[in-house]
Design a protein around this nucleic acid. Structure first.
Length: 280
DNA sequence: ATGACCGCTGGAAGCGGA
């Protein structure tokens, strides 16, 4: 374990991998090149026993994950350390068995990897998304005082700047005013939208549909977010989208997003609070 | 440019994704 007295960097990334086994070679290539310290993955699309833990360990990453056959699935990877799992489900509904939330402490920071329900078609599925987000907002509020990071596929387009053609997405579950309000409410709790802060101008899409030549037309959306709690938000140094990963042969329809934090001795002293959150 | 792509499962064609 790194010394709790020395400042150090943490590069944390989130990537909706869209099939962790089908994308394993690309994931390993990216880990080697990008060298993130912490990675949140979504859409593993693999049963728990089929998560490629051994291959990732050989690449230097230990992992905790919530798996599910065929659909969903979330994981947290840490370079050179085993994440200390604090939760494997979002609290508030024992009947919700979908693998959409996992939480772990890594190097004194509480990390959540989340995959919000899509919500389309609105007529039949928006209620599920609404209820999940309601539970998530409540849980997030309880984490705000700790050094914590919420990273994942939120399935929410936060602003008109985050969609190539806002008019075409009116009424879609990703862009409903209600959903954008929920995202704003999260920021209102104190969470910092790292990509928005570090890329305030220009485009910062994270998803391009496989259909209709969306990538070639740059018809993208910003759906993947890394939110940082107040105790460590001042440590944010950089945040970017690894767009080149979307252009690779056999790419996921999402690109990785990453943020770099320079954590100080003061941030480290909050680690005991993180452990407190883990015990709750 | 909401039919048109992709991964998963099962071993074909259907489902879910966003």
């Amino acid at each position: 374990m790194p010394s709790a007295l020395a400042g150090r960097d943490m590069k944390i990334a989130t990537w909706n991998i869209n099939g962790v086994n089908g994308r394993l070679a690309l994931l390993l290539e990216w880990l080697e090149a990008a060298k993130p310290d912490v990675v949140c993955l979504q859409e593993l699309k693999a049963a728990p026993a089929r998560f490629p833990a051994a291959a990732l360990s050989r690449a230097g990453y230990e992992a905790v994950w919530a798996g599910e056959k065929s659909w969903n699935g979330v994981a947290i990877l840490a370079r050179g350390a085993l994440p200390i799992e604090t939760r494997r489900a979002l609290p508030g509904d024992p009947r919700d068995t979908e693998a959409r939330y996992v939480e772990a402490a890594v190097d004194g920071v509480l990390i959540a990897s989340l995959y919000v329900p899509n919500g389309n078609p609105v007529e039949t599925r928006i209620d599920r998304k609404r209820r999940w987000i309601s539970r998530f907002l409540k849980h997030a509020e309880g984490l705000i005082e700790y050094p914590a990071i919420l990273a994942g596929d939120f399935n929410i387009i936060p602003t008109e700047r985050d969609v190539y053609n806002p008019a075409r997405w009116q009424g879609d579950a990703l862009f409903l005013p209600e959903m954008r309000t929920a995202f704003t409410a999260l920021l209102g709790q104190g969470w910092l939208d790292s990509l928005d802060v570090m890329q305030p101008t220009g485009e910062r899409f994270t998803f391009w549909d496989y259909k209709r030549n969306a990538w070639q037309r740059n018809a993208g959306l910003r759906l993947d977010h890394i939110l940082i709690s107040p105790p460590i938000s001042g440590a944010l140094q950089a945040a970017e989208v690894d767009r080149e990963m979307r252009g690779k042969t056999g790419a996921s329809d999402h690109a990785p997003v990453w943020a770099r934090l320079s954590l100080t001795k003061k941030d480290m002293s909050e680690s005991s609070s993180c452990a407190g959150a883990a015990r709750r």
